[in-house]
Design a protein around this nucleic acid. Structure first.
Length: 568
RNA sequence: GCACCCGUGGUGAAAUGGAUAUCAUUACUGACUUCGGAUCAGUCGUUGGGGGUUCGAGUCCCUCCGGGUGCACCA
């Protein structure tokens, strides 16, 4: 926030004035960061878009505009160039970059934050786990994205309410409970639950008798019929829930509230029935919403037996969310497969209560697939989140042992876990929304190049350098910039803008790609220049720059839900 | 059948309609007796086909081809 926007605003104003001077109004032009820094820090297409109106070539327009700009200097602009077909490129002063480095050093933990959502309450449904079913990679993807979005919203000044919406009663749950009752297995062990789910599903498909019994169990759970079955169910539910909490805590996520699908059903059915026939209508004995009227799918909300379906539950969930928190925005992270489904929900919610639909956002992520068949078979068809985490952790542990950085024995395990979480999360967050995500142990989770550990490593390396600089008695200062650090500074100052855009577009990958670019620029600089050299006149500046880069990496990693270790 | 999403080097990705399409990885070649080699430098290699809109298209529109997903009592 602040100065960066001011530079853009000043450039814009100067350009507007120049246009008026040339006798043109009413032309919209862009002022943006060019993709290639060789083209300056800001660039405008003003000459290209106004050429026709002025009846001149773009380049001669550019020349006239630049001549005019020369009369009234913009303080942060060092020089202006005309390039290519008629772009006008602005290069900022080293003093400006120095100020931004100082700003980062001063703000520390809040460097990069903005106020675009100040005063707003954002509710994020970070995870919707199916109790009793295995916590697999899909859940991991969901929560990784949810966590990052929550933190981006917080970085924009919003109060974020992070909730979970566990599916606690369903046919799937009934299948597992049926098996538990049959075998008398211990429902307090999470592995037993997973096995029971598999066994129950198999029985449901293969035995008509079992199928009937399972359907009966499902009914009894729905009406909360107390007894032996209910007791078994409750124990398993607690086991499953605890496991979920432990796993998500390992991933760095906590929840401030939890709402269960079983509660949503009752609420949802009420609302649906209260809104007949205005919104919902009866059809073939069931209650449906005629999505067709709006170019959407028509869907059943309450079955002909009077049971609320997922659709009705979602409406109940929305009511709960808005009545309890009245959020300015309610965000739900879902799979791409559910895109059209949630369009129906959103429309129905809007018809029931305008704000419910208008303020709800259903954010879709892509599907997860596996690049390497060997890997998925090694882990089972749908890899468990825990199994994957452990696999990656082993690689990290091995690496830590090899590099031998005198990390205290007691910290090694935590560090390996942080690295594993960082590797996994980064591989999910580096791609844009909606893209399918390819998972590959050998490549995506490689600790080199475009990866989470690369960013973490760069951060650790910077801390080490800063320690050396402190030992050498170097006091950081932003006065007197050496030529070699130019590439790093020109990226660094953009961080707050990147964070703002990432928040507005709900696009964590913008932060991920920016950090990787910054880390790359820093590492290039690092390879060429010694930073903590007390005899070097530029050492104070280099140290300040390293510190600012470290702060940027740390804050940016936090927004991705990744820890930035001091040593690794 | 209708609807939605996707197609960028061998592989995985990036690119508010902008300039010579960027990055990682793979393969190969190199790097300081010096602050952390999970690093850095270099070489090879790309927008599915065809039209259109635009000063300018990977991006927008049409069409074809290819892949994925969703469409009534599962969640």
């Amino acid at each position: 926030m602040g100065t960066v926007d001011i530079v853009e605003t000043e450039i814009r104003e100067a350009l507007h004035t120049a246009l008026r001077e040339l006798g043109v109004t009413d032309i919209s032009f862009s002022v943006e960061h060019p993709a290639d820094t060789a083209h300056g820090d800001y660039a405008t297409n003003i000459a290209l878009v106004s050429a026709q109106a002025l009846g001149k070539s773009p380049r001669s327009c550019a020349e006239e505009i630049v001549t005019f700009l020369g009369k009234k200097k913009i303080p942060q602009v060092e020089r202006i160039e005309i390039a290519g077909p008629g772009f006008i490129n602005f290069f900022l002063t080293r003093d400006f970059f120095g100020e931004k480095i100082a700003e980062a050093q001063k703000l520390k933990g809040t460097w990069g934050h903005n106020d675009s959502l100040k005063g707003q309450t954002i509710l994020i449904e970070k995870s919707a786990p199916n109790l009793y079913k295995p916590f697999h990679i899909g859940h991991l993807l969901n929560i990784t994205i949810g966590e990052s979005l929550s933190r981006l919203m917080q970085s924009a000044g919003a109060v974020s309410i992070d909730m979970a919406y566990p599916s606690d009663i369903s046919l799937g749950v009934a299948k597992a409970v049926w098996s538990l009752v049959q075998t008398g297995a211990d429902p307090s062990d999470i592995r037993t639950l997973g096995d029971a789910y598999v066994a129950g599903t198999k029985a449901y498909e293969e035995s008509a008798e079992a199928k009937e019994e399972i359907i009966e169990i499902n009914k009894s759970l729905n009406i909360k019929h107390e007894g032996e079955v209910w007791d078994v169910y409750e124990k398993g539910r607690e086991t499953s829930l605890n496991y979920f909490r432990v796993m998500t805590a390992r991933l760095g996520s906590v929840f401030s509230d939890t709402f269960f699908e079983s509660e949503a059903g009752i609420l949802g059915k009420e609302i649906v029935e209260a809104n007949m026939p205005d919104v919902f209508s009866e059809s073939e004995g069931a209650v449906v919403f005629k999505g067709e009227d709006y170019g959407l799918h028509t869907r059943v909300f309450v079955t002909s037996l009077g049971l609320p379906l997922y659709e009705a539950k979602d409406i109940g969930l929305i009511k709960w969310k808005f009545e309890k928190y009245n959020p300015d925005l309610s965000v739900v992270i879902t799979d791409m497969e559910q895109k059209q489904y949630f369009e129906v929900i959103k429309k129905a919610a809007e018809l029931v209560h305008g704000e419910w639909g208008e303020r709800s956002v259903y954010w879709q992520h892509g599907r997860l697939r596996f690049a390497d068949g060997k890997v998925s078979s090694r882990l089972g068809n749908v890899p468990l989140a825990e199994t994957m985490l452990e696999e990656v952790k082993q690689i990290a542990l091995q690496k830590i042992t090899e590099t031998n950085r005198d990390i205290p024995d007691g910290d090694i395990d935590d560090l390996a876990e942080d690295i594993a979480v960082g590797a996994i999360k980064y591989s999910f967050l580096r791609v844009a929304a909606g893209q399918n995500i390819v998972f590959d142990f050998e490549k995506s989770l490689s600790f080199e190049g475009d990866s989470g550990p690369y960013l973490m490593y760069t951060h650790a390396r910077i801390q080490s350098v800063l320690e050396k600089a402190a030992d050498a008695g170097i006091t950081p200062s932003v006065k007197g910039a050496p030529e070699q650090s130019y590439g790093v500074e020109r990226l660094l100052y953009r961080f707050p803008e990147v964070v703002r855009t990432a928040g507005e577009e709900r696009a964590p990958h913008l932060v991920a790609t920016f950090l990787t670019q910054l880390a790359g620029a820093f590492n290039t600089f690092y390879a060429q220049e010694k930073i903590a050299d007390a005899s070097d006149e530029y050492a104070p500046y280099k140290t300040a720059l390293a510190e600012a880069a470290g702060i940027t990496l740390k804050n940016g990693l936090w927004m991705l839900g990744i820890k930035a270790p001091e040593k690794m």
